[in-house]
């Protein structure tokens, strides 16, 4: 019964996965463009944001249309509510990839004061969180979503570490303030991505179980 409707839900889910995959890739490339001072790549990332915006609008429109025409209830309704929310969080994460790329353009291939260590680690954990959340979304696995959200503590921890380190650089040598301040921005963007990934997890737990959880404290 309602086969057509459930096919549409599946198609919507595919679209969310596609969007998530693109966002993961954009974050990875943003941090790579920073590490390598690759201005061309940074420029591509800035330009690629429009596609993600369009995907978010599409997910939003399709979800609302299904609510209007199918009047879903129970888990179907929760799935559509979550789809809208996941679309918004993924779009925000994509914006942060753009923010990082803009920092790269502003630094204009200036050599980094030291090789990046913690910032790529933050980005890796962010990407892992998004990927695991998308898996738990497809598998309707609330416990996997909960486990994934715990990774955000690690991102927060690294953020504190980056901040302290860069503040020390700035105090020691005022010439490093310009670059250090920009790297602090990058680490803050990555910290926010972790919070958005946690939102994904919360949405998925609600979608699967109907329970509200708040793991961003």
């Amino acid at each position: 019964m309602r086969q057509e409707f459930h096919d549409e839900l599946d198609a919507l889910q595919q679209e969310i996965l596609r969007m998530g995959t693109i966002v993961v890739q954009r974050l990875s490339e943003a941090v790579r463009s920073l590490a390598q001072g690759d201005l061309d790549l940074a420029q591509q990332i800035v330009e690629g944001d429009d596609e993600v915006d369009r995907m978010q609008a599409d997910i939003d429109t399709r979800s609302l249309a299904l609510i209007a025409t199918q009047q879903p209830l129970a888990s179907d309704l929760r799935m559509l509510g979550t789809a809208i929310k996941v679309g918004v969080d993924l779009e925000r994460m994509s914006d942060h990839a753009t923010d990082i790329a803009k920092v790269v353009l502003r630094l204009d291939a200036e050599p980094l004061m030291k090789p990046l260590v913690d910032i790529p680690r933050m980005a890796e954990i962010d990407q892992r969180m998004i990927q695991e959340c998308l898996k738990s979304f497809v598998n309707r696995d609330a416990s996997q979503a909960r486990d994934t959200m715990k990774l955000d503590d690690e991102v927060d921890h690294l953020y504190g570490q980056v901040l302290r380190e860069l503040l020390t650089f700035m105090i020691e040598d005022p010439k490093k303030v310009h670059q250090a301040a920009h790297l602090i921005l990058v680490s803050q963007y990555l910290e926010r991505v972790g919070d958005h990934a946690t939102n994904l997890g919360e949405g998925i737990v609600f979608m699967v179980t109907g329970e509200r959880v708040d793991l961003n404290r």
Binding site: M1, R2, F5, H6, P72, L73, A74, S75, D76, L77, R78, T209, G210, E211
Partner: peptide, 19 residues
Amino acid sequence: LFTAPKDKRTEDYLTGRFG
């Protein structure tokens, strides 16, 4: 009950995955 039913049978009925 309409957003998060507790019983699987209610869930199946409300989502039309039933019968």
